[in-house]
Amino acid sequence: MDMLDRTIPTPQELIARAEALVPFLREQAASNKAARRITAETIARVKDAGLFRVIQPSRYGGYEMSPEVFGEIITTLGRGDASMGFVFGVVAVHSFHMAFYDDQAAQDVWGEDSSVLVGSPYAPNGKAVKVDGGYRVSGRWSFSSGCDNCDWNFLGGMIEGDEGPILQRLHAFLIPRADAKIVDTWHVTGLQGSGSKDIVVEDAFVPEYRVQRFPIFDASAHPGTKLNNAPLFRAPFMPLFVRSVSSAALGALEGMIEHFSGYTANRLNVLSERVARDPRVQEALGQARAEVEEMKSTMRRDLARMDEIGREGQLISMDEMTLLMLKSANVPHRAEKAALTLMRAAGANGIRNDHPLAGIYNDILVIGQHASNTPATQAISLGKMMLGVQD
């Protein structure tokens, strides 16, 4: 039975379902890492909990909950396994993106099964040629997180013959897995379970209704919002997207703090002294918790602001959009610094594979390598606006 027929949970119930999965995700983390993808068992449990429906349009079986609920679920899953938290953020935001497409596109994806997942990436690596009724698309895209678990992909590209600034020429082409090939290139130092492999498409036909301009700045310019007209789908897309790819690092740092506390509580150093009495260890742990609290407060406030913008039907200013994106992009790097301090405080035993600390640190480090998590890009743009500097 499709979940269209099931009762919609409250936001509190949905967050509680995510919390209940944390022990299971910790058990599964090693399997996801070894498989270099989110295993079918893991993805099934997250699907069964209804979590991927959090910001999916209600007309297609989603819950249309607020950006704040979305953020809480990402960080909660990230506490259990950074790879699962990261894949969840990336894939769930694509269900949000589907709201901007023509209804026929959504029917293609969810007409028979509203639990189908959509991957990406949006990097403009595709070349499209206009033909009768649509486009012929070819290209190769790296870093398709969760691709093994997705039946469709949003793939970025440009249309042959288009002119003008690059941001005005970018499009997202919605392409089924049947028209794409996964190439296993994902051999990395962290976040192995995300399975962020390459996607190759060779001369696939994409009907016009499955092509939209990207990024999204004005929701009203996209056909899907005539049907999906809830305030959620007027929230600013790009700030929400950057939160979706950065917030798992915050959850991972929370998880690392929990592991560190349990590991350190009764540990003795080489002199048989309790490590927990070392002021440097105490400071590292205290500072890490302060970082989590500050970043989580900012995340909640900023996601609430995105919700407010949607409810008021505002168009976000470029200044505010850039600031929101910068604060999100900072998260993995702040988390990585705190995690490195914990690693050093853990001593030599912290690097052992039978402890999760080093693995979590590497996961956070890799999340920070995502192109959207580059603070300098947003900081420079914001600084230019504040100084009135134009290129």
Score class of each variant (00 low, 15 high):
L387K: 15
G359E: 03
L250M: 06
R280Q: 14
E294F: 07
C147R: 12
I38H: 01
K327P: 00
D81R: 05
H333E: 08
S58L: 10
G62Y: 06
K47P: 03
Q369A: 07
A219L: 05
G350C: 02
S83E: 03
A339C: 01
D5S: 08
F70M: 13
V46F: 09
E41Y: 03
T298K: 13
F86R: 11
S66G: 04
G193Y: 06
K127F: 06
S246Y: 03
A248H: 03
R300W: 09
L303E: 08
R301F: 06
L315P: 05
S120L: 09
A379C: 03
L357H: 12
L174N: 05
A82F: 01
K47A: 05
S194N: 09
F173G: 09
A265C: 04
N228A: 13
D113G: 04
E68L: 12
P57G: 05
R37T: 05
L51S: 10
M256L: 12
L342W: 04
T185M: 01
R277H: 10
L253C: 03
L357Y: 07
I257S: 00
I8V: 15
A172D: 12
P207G: 12
L227P: 00
D113F: 00
K33S: 11
A329E: 08
I367C: 04
A204M: 11
K384G: 02
I257R: 01
K296I: 02
D218F: 15
E112T: 06
N266P: 02
S66I: 06
N32L: 03
V331L: 02
V137P: 07
T75F: 01
A284Q: 08
R274D: 06
G347S: 05
F241H: 13
A204Y: 09
G190A: 05
L365P: 00
V201N: 13
H355R: 14
Q390V: 15
D2P: 05
V109N: 10
R169M: 05
L253I: 04
R213C: 08
Q390R: 15
G61S: 08
V91I: 14
R210G: 08
G359L: 00
L342Q: 03
A339L: 02
R140I: 09
M325G: 00
L240T: 05
Y101M: 13
Q12D: 15
R36K: 11
I8D: 12
L167A: 07
F70E: 09
V292N: 10
D102Q: 10
A249F: 01
G350Y: 03
W110N: 12
P223A: 14
